[in-house]
Design a protein around this nucleic acid. Structure first.
Lengths: 121, 121
DNA sequence: CCGTATCCTGCCTGATACTG
DNA sequence: CAGTATCAGGCAGGATACGG
């Protein structure tokens, strides 16, 4: 068994020193999960690919990718060509989120199956 | 096999008509997942219990619970006593997110195990 | 105890322009 | 192509006070 982090109990889940709290913090923000999902599906993707796929703005995509890099979840690979090419991919730690995403997708499918009416928004 | 929703491909993941998009939408915002996690651990919890556990403000907790109710993920049970008592619990659809949360927690633990230094923040 | 009502800050968006 | 810069506007989220 791996060294399990003890929960102090003072602020429980919210605390980034417990597994759940750290996970929550790692994916905080609107675009972390969607970006990681795109990368998990494509293996590697270029900046503008992600942008088109998600309909995200430059600022938010850049910030999100930077954050994910800082957490060691995403790799940035720059090819010095003309035109310049930059590819993003999941690190091994980033890749490890996929089982959670799969379960999550199954859950979303259940929700869709359960409700008869479709949200029009 | 259940009726699987076809992805139009026009906006892919972002679209709430695909499983992943709908799931993303259902947990959008900072507090949906933490609240559901608390409820999954406690079975049922009172308003102030959740509040203390998460360190969340009244407004955000109320809004989050209302949203989760609308999505059919959380039940609100009011006991007309003095002092008044209100308990929240997961519906069957809400309960179904637990496997995803478990995988998610395992991922958080992996991240903690991987990095040597602890975030001081 | 269980919320609602304000006010305020900061994230997020959208559009547009500009650099290596 | 892959960003950075900026500004306007909207909406999520936080702090505090008040009400049923």
């Amino acid at each position: 068994m791996s060294k399990h982090v003890e929960n102090t109990g003072t602020d429980g889940i919210t605390s980034p020193t417990c597994a759940m709290g750290y996970a929550f913090k790692a994916i905080e923000g609107k675009w972390k999960l969607p970006v990681m999902y795109v990368l998990s599906e494509r293996g590697a993707a270029r900046y503008n690919e992600i942008k088109r796929e998600l309909g995200i703005t430059n600022m938010m995509l850049t910030n999100t990718l930077r954050d994910l890099e800082e957490y060691g979840l995403v790799n940035r690979t720059q090819y010095n060509e003309v035109p310049p090419r930059v590819e993003y991919s999941l690190t091994s730690n980033g890749y490890a989120i996929i089982p959670a995403l799969k379960e999550f997708e199954k859950w979303g499918q259940l929700l869709l199956d359960t409700k008869e009416d479709v949200i029009q928004d």
